[in-house]
């Protein structure tokens, strides 16, 4: 059962082709990782899937329905959540409020009832707060709940963003380098967290530089280089693919070689 299918996705920036003809699928309960050298177009691909960029070519389908170019808030209504490599957190809100904001779509009620502070509103707020605190505990931030988000460390903000994304109870979760800037212990924790999220039936799409993490938890790996897909498959198979090895080491190894000769 395919949840997300990406077909021939491409975008150019001022004549430079950033991503071209990339396609793959994602299923509930499985982790698909997108890897590739710096500048390969991984984040650009994520931005197109999540509606931040409007693709120039190709289609994005959710449940077979064409959602190409829908605004991020429309995609959120359809069950897509994401995090950013360089963080998009409400810095001037408390940690708890950030996660509660993630429940926005589930919180719909009458504005009049809100203004009057009717019991229905208060009950809903209490439930949201309870759910948010449970998520904070899950990412290990329960003791920072009342602090302003801007006071957190980078690694903690990464986890906060994951908690907020989870608050929307997504069916498809895009994580852009969740372990970047985290120490080995934190990376291990994020590792386990992602695997647990997928085990609950969420389709996870992961961009990550930490190869150990990718190889350990991914079910399927897509390799990008210069904006194009150069390989795809099970983690072990991809790691042995000569084209992948070249993309990661080739240019560098070539320069080293010419140094030695020259």
């Amino acid at each position: 059962m395919t949840l997300l299918s990406v077909e021939g996705l491409g975008i150019d920036f001022g004549g430079v082709t950033a991503v071209d003809g990339v396609g793959f699928t994602a299923e509930p309960g499985r982790i698909v990782s997108v890897i590739g050298p710096n500048g390969a177009g991984k984040t650009t691909l994520f931005n197109m899937i999540s509606g931040v960029y409007l693709p120039h070519r190709g289609r994005v389908r959710l449940d077979g329905e064409d959602v190409t170019g829908l605004a991020p808030n429309r995609l959120a209504e359809r069950g897509l959540s994401r995090t950013f490599q360089n963080l998009q957190v409400f810095l001037r809100m408390s940690v708890l409020d950030n996660v509660m904001a993630g429940r926005h779509l589930a919180e719909r009620g009458s504005t009049l009832a809100d203004l009057l502070g009717l019991p229905s509103t208060r009950r809903r707020s209490r439930e949201t707060e309870r759910a948010a605190r449970a998520l904070l505990e899950r990412v290990g931030l329960e003791r920072a709940a009342e602090r302003e988000a801007s006071a957190l460390s980078y690694g903690a903000l990464k986890r906060l963003e994951i908690a907020r994304a989870l608050a929307a109870r997504p069916r498809l979760l895009l994580l852009d380098e969740p372990a970047a800037g985290c120490n080995p212990v934190e990376t291990e924790e994020i590792d386990a967290l992602i695997a647990a999220i997928a085990a609950e039936g969420v389709a996870v799409l992961l961009v990550e530089h930490d190869m150990k993490l990718v190889m350990k938890i991914s079910h399927h790996v897509v390799v990008l280089d210069h904006g194009e897909k150069i390989a795809e498959g099970a983690p072990e198979a991809v790691a042995r693919d000569p084209k992948v090895v070249e993309a990661y080491l080739g240019a560098h190894a070539g320069r080293e070689g010419s140094h030695a000769l020259g």
């Binding site: 959120a76 998009q88 409400f90 926005h104 779509l105 719909r108 504005t111 203004l115 994304a165």
Partner: peptide
């Protein structure tokens, strides 16, 4: 108090993040 009012504040705080939460 209202969710819409809080959505307004969230939009000012971080527009992209606001879109992400729907």
């Amino acid at each position: 108090r209202s969710l819409t009012g809080k959505a307004v504040l969230a939009t000012a705080n971080n527009k992209l993040a606001a879109q992400l939460v729907g």
